[in-house]
Design a binder for these strands. Structure first.
Lengths: 186, 186
DNA sequence: CTCCGTTGGCTAAGACACTTAGTTTTACAG
DNA sequence: CTGTAAAACTAAGTGTCTTAGCCAACGGAG
């Protein structure tokens, strides 16, 4: 039964799907191997081990998120771009909870992954007239707010029976207001 | 060597300290037992298992964070209170990275823990004249922003060589501006 | 002071996951 | 057709969580 047609991408994809469906904790070499109808040691032909697999899932997730953000931002500017990026991030996270959770674990060589997510956000700031250090500070604030919201929402951190979608739109309004004000000051 | 003087609180405290010092991944029953000079099965007299231990660490962490926020907010209002709460949250998280990471794992019976963190933040909103649903939406926005910032910072999510402390102060300014504007509208 | 029950520790052992080593089988190139 | 390398396998070692059952120490009742 050699050559079942596996490769690294297939293994990582299976792990990411498993994470979305059963939670990040369920991503074990045994479970992933079972998904692929293969014995656990066979995965070592494509991945160095569990740590490596998790790191690759995080990398995959960062790439997908970056693509979603880049797509959302293209053709828009300032407030439109900010809202589109925020909604795209939230929608992606709600659709892929396991992948989003995987982003939380920082791993070596993640520098490129972070950069790919930051690039479209810097472009958004350009629409507000923010450049250089101001843009970086602003990107950090916006990323923190959106990421934190999605993380709290996904983790059940909102106890009150109030639509998180409404809260999120208000958060975007608040960020837009704040960035407009910064824009006017500079 | 019976009766080594353990109890549930001591076990949870040891686990929390271990999480801060060596990361949340290092919190295993074996490691905690070693810290306490006890064999792993002995921990079952005080804790139902690993899941229970982690849940209790999260509960402890939420309580400590809530206490820090409550303390920071007392005697202040509006912008002062917001900034004090934000700085207290960030300082606590930087001092206790493992406990902060433990907050990310939602567990049953965490309702009270969430509530204890939310209460002081609702008090802050009162200082801005925000009540009811407006206050809840605002608390969600502020919690998300601060929590997200601390999580990204702690996870190495900021790649650029720019002081995170400055970024955080700007985030607090942005939130304060936004809440003031909401205040004026209502 | 002694005795006994409860408590909280222990050892032993099973189940499960990760990982390494070494083997076998398959696909493809020459 | 044959040989080689890739990719799967089985077997086995290690470490962790967890359960089961045992034993010692503390503390109150007589």
């Amino acid at each position: 039964m050699a050559h079942a047609g596996l490769d690294t991408a297939a293994v990582v994809a299976a792990a990411a799907s498993l994470a979305d469906e059963q939670g990040l904790e369920a991503v074990t070499l045994t479970a992933v191997a079972a998904t692929l109808a293969v014995r656990p040691p066979s995965l070592y032909s494509h991945v160095s081990g569990l740590q490596d697999l998790r790191a690759r899932v995080a990398e995959l997730a960062a790439g997908e998120l970056a693509a979603a953000l880049t797509d959302a931002v293209s053709g828009r500017a300032a407030g439109d771009a900010l809202r589109a990026a925020g909604r795209a991030h939230r929608a992606w996270a709600l659709a892929h909870p396991g992948r989003h959770a995987a982003l939380q674990f920082p791993r070596p060589r993640q520098h490129d992954a972070v950069a790919s997510v930051v690039v479209p956000m810097v472009a958004v700031m350009r629409g507000y007239g923010l450049e250089g250090e101001d843009a970086i500070h602003a990107v950090r604030a916006v990323r923190a707010a959106i990421y934190g919201f999605v993380a709290l929402e996904g983790g059940g951190g909102f106890g009150m029976p109030l639509d998180p979608g409404d809260s999120f739109e208000r958060l975007l309004d608040l960020l837009d207001d704040g960035l407009q004000r910064l824009s006017r000051r500079s």
